[in-house]
Computed example of a mutant assay.
Amino acid sequence: MPPIRLLVPGNIHHHSGGNAYNARMVQGLQGLGADVEVLAVEGSWPEASAKDRRRLGTLLGAWEPEAGRGPAVVIVDGLVAVGAPDEMEFAAKAGHETWVLLHMTVPDGPGGPAWKREARALRAASGLISTSSSTAATLTQRHGLHGIRVALPGVDPAPVASGSRPPHMIAVAALLPNKDQLLTVDALSRIQDLEWTAALVGSDQADPAYAGKVRAAIAASGLEERVRLTGELVGEDLDREWDAANLSLLPSRAEAFGMVVTESLARGLPVVVRQGTGAVEALGLAGLTDHDGGPRLPGVAVPLVPGDREGPARLAEVLRGWLGDPDIRQAWRRAVMEARTRLPDWNRTAETVLEALATPGPQGTSAP
């Protein structure tokens, strides 16, 4: 196996699922004996400057087909690749093997410029690896791509959370509009007659304006004594937050997979997610969906729609049921404790990536 060069975006500084996946995948590949080099590509990806795109093109060997870039197989994070379709196409013409690792799809509307750049970049790739089945299915339908390999995230073993009294809810995600912490705060404001505490754990610097709105909503609802904003936490500080939790919340408007779901399950924590997102696939990875792909307990998927005025009430109803009924809490807990034994590890993720790289096919071309 030739050396692997992984090109990751240099502009994502907060803890994200994509960053975490990349880091654990690299560790897994190295554990399997692969020679992996990680390079952070500077630029405001996917909307990088011409200078940043030229720098990427050099790393791809796009401008020097004779000298090329050496024997390495290059894997480009999708956030970078979709911002540089010209460079991806030149690298393909130069005969270099360039794969794209896809964590998500672009949010632009059908036929929009971002969709077109995404299609060009992905069709120029030697192969495509997606971190979720939902992302692969979307790209197949959107661009007629086929043969996309899926390497689902693994999860690290973790101790079972001790929990707290009163029950403590945790939402681990950067404060961003897509993560919809405003909806969470609205829902929590509707159950103040019950005993509980909550923590929103994630960077408040990824989108300072949105973080300010979340703080204002907490204050306006009189929840300052019950809902904490911790900022981004790592290591022992994050472990303490997990250990204090009884329930995990991930009501994101869109999720390709939702690694927080499997991280929660590994700690014996039930998870409430938004129906119709990739977070439901994460539940299925632990056997917590039925034959039709619908969620079973303990992963309650709430039918929330962005902008739906009833969304906070629906989430509040689920939380009220869990808080107010000991039988529900016990049933969710039992199911989670069984599910956590079925979670895959990161070695399997790395093995899937190596298998894909060893058997390149027509993934990066359009379907006939």
Rank of each mutant, 00 (worst) to 15 (best):
S134E: 11
W99I: 00
R69Y: 00
I75G: 02
M104N: 15
G61L: 04
R69V: 00
V155F: 11
L139S: 00
D156H: 11
G78P: 06
A136Y: 04
G61H: 00
A91Y: 05
I170E: 00
G83D: 05
A158C: 06
E89S: 14
A67H: 09
A81G: 06
S133E: 14
E87H: 05
T131V: 15
A94I: 00
R55A: 13
V76N: 01
G144L: 12
S134R: 14
L152V: 07
L59T: 03
T131A: 09
S132T: 05
Q141A: 15
G43W: 05
G78W: 04
E89I: 11
E87Y: 07
A161C: 12
H146I: 07
A124N: 04
R69I: 01
G109A: 15
W45Q: 01
A174Q: 13
D156M: 11
A91W: 05
I170N: 00
S162N: 12
E64S: 15
A174W: 06
H103T: 07
A124S: 14
A161L: 11
H146L: 11
A84V: 06
P107W: 13
S44R: 15
R117H: 14
E64R: 15
E118G: 03
L60P: 02
V155A: 04
R54T: 13
I148N: 01
A84W: 02
V106M: 11
P113D: 10
L122Y: 08
L102W: 08
V100W: 04
T138H: 13
H168W: 07
G127S: 03
E47S: 14
G163A: 13
H168A: 08
V82M: 03
S133Y: 11
L145S: 01
V160N: 01
H168Q: 11
L152P: 02
G112L: 09
A94F: 02
R53P: 01
G154E: 09
T131H: 06
R142Y: 10
G70T: 03
A72S: 14
I148Y: 07
L176E: 13
V76E: 01
E89R: 14
A161R: 05
A171W: 03
P159Y: 01
W99K: 03
